[in-house]
């Protein structure tokens, strides 16, 4: 029996998987970026369907609002097509398929080991208060390590992007002289 929830699930699955395929296969790289955004949005809607709106909303805010926009921005600056034109040889595609299969098998087996197979429909969805309590209590070390990783990556980005003021002044001097 197909009800409205199943129909919505199928539609959203088509949007997410189709968006992902479009992101990989689109000839025009901008359409690929839009497909990526659509895929993220589909996944966020699946979270809504699974009764966890908090995760869904942050999926939209972070992935559609920040990641997809950054990808689009980068793609727009790199419109040469130099790095995207090469087609992949047979060895690479076979290796890719094997990697994907290994990843899927390991993820699925760990999900089932974590008790996904006997999940019941009646379990009430955790609210964001519960998530906050877990993150500041039992899983506080995880949160702190994640924060440290993020801080380290921000510092790394700043160091990479930093313009040396001495070199800038030197360049300006040379420009004046010439």
């Amino acid at each position: 029996m197909v009800d409205a929830t199943d129909a919505a699930f199928v539609a959203l699955a088509i949007v997410s998987v189709g968006g992902a395929i479009a992101a990989l296969e689109a000839k025009e790289i901008i359409y690929g970026a839009v497909g990526l955004a659509a895929s993220f949005f589909g996944v966020a809607s699946l979270f809504f369907l699974l009764d966890s709106p908090f995760v869904a909303v942050f999926q939209i805010t972070v992935y559609v609002g920040a990641v997809a926009v950054l990808v689009l921005f980068t793609v727009m600056l790199v419109r040469e097509g130099r790095w995207f034109g090469d087609s992949v040889g047979p060895t690479a595609s076979v290796a890719g398929l094997i990697t994907v299969a290994a990843l899927v098998i390991s993820l699925v087996s760990s999900f089932f080991a974590a008790g996904l197979s006997n999940a019941s429909e009646q379990a009430s969805a955790p609210s964001f208060v519960d998530i906050g309590k877990l993150l500041t209590g039992q899983f506080a070390p995880v949160l702190e390590i994640l924060a440290l990783v993020l801080a380290a990556s921000v510092l790394g980005a700043l160091t990479l992007a930093k313009v040396d003021p001495g070199a800038k002044a030197q360049a300006a001097n040379e420009r004046e002289r010439s």
Binding site: A37, P53, F58, I60, T61, V64, G65, A66, V69, L72
Partner: peptide, 12 residues
């Protein structure tokens, strides 16, 4: 939070 999720579509 949904307010900000919707607003974050605008740059795209």
């Amino acid at each position: 939070v949904l307010v900000f999720a919707i607003v974050s579509f605008t740059p795209l």
